[in-house]
């Protein structure tokens, strides 16, 4: 089946997902305690002022109507303004997306470029010192929480050694620590995933067949094992990448990177509904695209996958 058609179908399938997710979010946020109008105007505001503010925010209408109005605007690509500071949601998202994307991409490259080769080599030299060593490192990275590792690295590299800036984005050096911290977890899972995948593939019969044909082990690994072991790795990469888009909150917080994670978290905490919904819609679309890309790549690698089915 033509992959363009397939891609189109998949993207269209995102629409029901978005509707479902936003509706559930809408319900939850509406049910949560906390009256934003009252909060914004302060304790001393009169009831009329609060009611006026609520009408302005559209909070006086019933839930379904509000949801309908919101979705109608979304279709017109109007994602509204933040209830807290009036800034356009779309603009705010566009300002912050590049940082998050940059950070996520760098973290993925870091994790994959180091983790996959290490994992594969561990698998080939199973039970060697290299194997034990990388497994140890991987488990360590898994276990150390990001906020601890991040703060420790800050103290070491920024305060004591003064090699790197503490926070914010002031140049290419600012990306080094956040990339490593964000990528640490993914690195660990890449090592484990590659190792497991390669171990699995090496035990397959066709590897034995290839060797029986007279191919050296190195050649066999490169030509036969690698491609087959990549399939689960690519899938894992897709899942992780999608996760780092919205989930880099801790890293963003520690290193003060103006990314999407913090924006979303703050919006939820302060019940800024337009920002929450807008961000979730954008993130859903991005994640959907990433998943699609991953599936297409897998189909490219593995001829057994038939897109039409």
């Amino acid at each position: 089946m033509n992959w363009v058609k397939y891609a189109g179908k998949r993207l269209l399938m995102l629409i029901p997902v978005i509707i479902c997710v936003t509706f559930i979010l809408f319900l939850i946020l509406s049910a949560a305690p906390g009256n934003l109008a009252r909060q914004l105007l302060g304790q001393d505001a009169t009831e009329e002022q609060i009611e006026a503010k609520q009408a302005e925010m559209g909070l006086d209408k019933p839930l379904l109507v509000r949801y309908g109005l919101y979705m109608r605007d979304v279709v017109r690509l109007d994602f509204g303004e933040s209830w807290i500071n009036g800034e356009s949601v779309l603009e705010r998202f566009q300002n912050r997306l590049p940082y998050t994307l940059m950070l996520s991409t760098l973290a993925m490259i870091f994790a994959v470029a180091i983790g996959v080769p290490l994992g594969i080599m561990s698998a080939i030299r199973q039970y060697s010192l290299l194997d034990y060593g990388t497994t140890f490192v991987a488990i360590l990275l898994f276990s150390l929480p990001a906020f601890w590792l991040g703060t420790m690295c800050q103290i070491l590299f920024c305060l004591i050694l003064r090699w790197l800036p503490t926070s914010g984005i002031t140049g290419w050096k600012s990306y080094i620590l956040p990339t490593v911290i964000l990528g640490a977890n993914t690195l660990a899972s890449m090592i484990r995933m590659s190792r497991t995948s390669m171990l699995d593939v090496i035990r397959q019969d066709y590897i034995r067949t290839a060797r029986a044909k007279g191919a050296a082990m190195q050649v066999v690994v490169r030509k036969h094992a690698l491609r087959n072991s990549l399939i689960p790795i690519v899938t894992q990469m897709g899942i992780t990448f999608a996760g780092t888009i919205g989930g880099a909150v801790v890293t963003e917080n520690i290193f003060t990177i103006p990314g999407i994670g913090t924006m979303l978290l703050n919006a939820v905490k302060s019940r800024d509904v337009p920002v929450v919904l807008g961000t979730v819609i954008f993130v859903t679309i991005i994640v959907g695209i990433i998943n699609l890309a991953v599936d297409l790549i897998c189909a490219l690698i593995d001829p057994r996958i038939d897109l039409a089915s």
Binding site: Q204, D205, Y206, R208, T209, A210, R211, A212, K213, G214, A215, A216, H224, R227, N228, I301, D302, P303, R304
Partner: peptide, 28 residues
């Protein structure tokens, strides 16, 4: 030595295995 074994395998001595379903590389 392994290098000489490589020259033998597949060329002078061949082997076919039991399960054809898994003996072939699915991606080639």
């Amino acid at each position: 030595p392994e290098a000489e074994m490589l020259a033998l395998r597949g060329k002078r001595i061949s082997m076919i295995f039991q399960d054809p379903m898994t003996s072939l590389n699915p991606t080639h």
